[in-house]
Design a protein around this nucleic acid. Structure first.
Ligand SMILES: [Zn+2]
Ligand SMILES: [Zn+2]
Ligand SMILES: [Zn+2]
Ligand SMILES: [Zn+2]
Lengths: 150, 150
DNA sequence: GACCTTACGATAATGATTATCGTTTGCGAT
DNA sequence: ATCGCAAACGATAATCATTATCGTAAGGTC
């Protein structure tokens, strides 16, 4: 699966502050390997004894997305799922519909294609969303033993 | 922008019935060139004197999507937008963020890429979503004179 | 420590989509 | 034409992720 490719991030005169909550969200996100929803993240945090409001989790995820620290995908239902971005530049993912396992996939071909389309059509500020889903090897055998692990 | 690629449509023993409402939805969809939301479609229909429930519009769009008559994309907000499918096989679209204008784009490169990824990773039943957005030539000059025309 | 601004968070609101469920209707069979 | 029944309809309520509010708390700088 892929990424909601963020367009021009309007420059922020003041950098985001470093707060306990924001660090906790990013850390909790790293603790999970797989794509996670805001609500799941919130539950996990509270379960770990971290006091944090759901609103704040959403806000933190927005910031992290704007600053390029996390990638976002959308489920069929429309729910947003987050995952820390491996390195610099955005990525695309292939996600198992049964267990949530996600793999980063090579997508240079898509990047080039998107650029070409932009040129050919005369559209400006072209963004792309590319997502792949499927059923992973494990799940083809014994469907979804795990939960949302990845 | 692209398509929520529908996986295996489970075979339907009984074919969908032909109803006044379903025909009206498809026809209204063709009347508009651009991607349209279920609600907008419903309003347009009622404005045309077609008595139809919103629920039915949603149902009709589901059916039309299942049977491959319409393509679906998602806005940033998550709202689903529908457009009649040009011909056979699914398509991908480039949509203007300012005015809604949509163009079908050539995406063979993406199709091949998706197939290759599927093979390489050993995932089964791989589906893809590919969406492009940008700002069209007209809108670069005078931003969004029109509405949601396309 | 004072100050200003950003961030928090409990709570309410939003809004698209889906579920309910009694009524209507397409349509194949009689 | 009419019967019968599953499919379709539609008014209404429910769902549920996300966003808006707004008073309070706390970074960060001088
Ligand atoms: Zn799996
Ligand atoms: Zn990309
Ligand atoms: Zn435009
Ligand atoms: Zn495709």
């Amino acid at each position: 699966m892929g990424v909601l490719h963020d367009a021009m991030t309007p420059k922020r005169s003041v950098p985001p502050r470093s707060t306990r909550q924001r660090q906790a969200v990013l850390s909790a996100l790293h603790a999970r390997g797989a794509f996670t929803s805001a609500r799941d993240l919130h539950e996990a945090l509270e379960a770990d004894g971290v006091a944090i409001g759901l609103t704040t989790v959403y806000r933190a995820l927005h910031v992290l997305n704007r600053t390029g620290r996390v990638d976002v995908i959308r489920e069929k239902t429309g729910e947003r799922l987050y995952r820390p971005r491996p390195e610099d530049g955005h990525r695309h993912y292939l996600v198992c519909r049964a267990c949530g396992l996600s793999k980063v996939v090579e997508a240079d071909a898509v990047e080039r294609w998107a650029e070409n389309v932009a040129e050919a059509t005369g559209f400006a500020e072209v963004e792309h969303t590319v997502e792949l889903t499927g059923v992973c090897g494990d799940c083809r055998v014994g469907p979804a033993a795990r939960d949302s692990a990845g």
